[in-house]
Design a protein around this nucleic acid. Structure first.
Lengths: 117, 117
DNA sequence: GTACTTGCAAATACTTTGCAGGTAT
DNA sequence: ATACCTGCAAAGTATTTGCAAGTAC
């Protein structure tokens, strides 16, 4: 599961991970996938993500260069990612003023993609 | 349901709405609550929100002055809201460059609140 | 009467847990 | 032998849907 996650550029759901691993011959159970993800999430190694479709997704919590956020198309369900340095700066600023010890942040944009407009 | 939502300063879950309405004597069914929320969400009158605990929350999509985002405490589950004008400006900018017709955006910060640190 | 709305109960979908069998030390 | 890990099946939870009864026009 860890090796698979590491090859993923963006977020994936537990069932998707399970199907992919099964597809390549790994006899792993769905419960084990969830258990691994739970452990990794607790340690902050993967980030939990909820895109609003009822499926919890996970992605490696890469530091720095690969940090990104998500754009979801309400029409076709497509998920894209984007990154913006100014956005990160402003968020870091908000975090510092919040009084919280912020462990993670997430920005979600939803709307119609170019094809669905 | 609409009247109740209108009195809510921040997001609430469907079951919570149901319990509250029942508590004040309204004999409404849980399914109807979900149906109303679904309709309102489709029309863009309420915003769907996923805070990561498996419960979908809803809040009135108020224009302008009441627009805010959320801070969730991983320790005690407390949810707070915050607003930041600079953040909105930067997000609007990202939205325009995205190629999407963005209908809604959401920023979620999670970490330890002052008491839980 | 027709069309729409309602609440209940059943169904669905995702996630978590119990447990028996297996592996490593 | 002890402690841990695994997969399957069952349980749990949140949400959606089918349907019969009720309401409005």
């Amino acid at each position: 599961v860890i090796a698979f996650l590491d090859t993923q550029p963006c977020c994936v759901g537990a069932q998707e991970i399970h199907d992919q691993l099964r597809g390549r011959g790994e006899p792993v159970g769905l419960a084990s996938v969830y258990r691994v993800l739970e452990t990794l999430a607790q340690q902050g190694l993967v980030q939990r993500l909820d895109l609003g479709d009822g499926v919890t997704r996970f992605e490696p919590a890469r530091t720095g260069e690969d940090h990104h956020h998500h754009l979801v198309c309400d029409g076709c369900g497509k998920v894209e990612s984007f990154a913006d340095a100014r956005l990160e700066t402003v968020i870091r600023d908000v975090e510092q003023r919040s009084g919280y010890d912020v462990a993670a942040h997430d920005v979600l944009l939803r709307g119609a993609c170019g094809a669905c407009r």
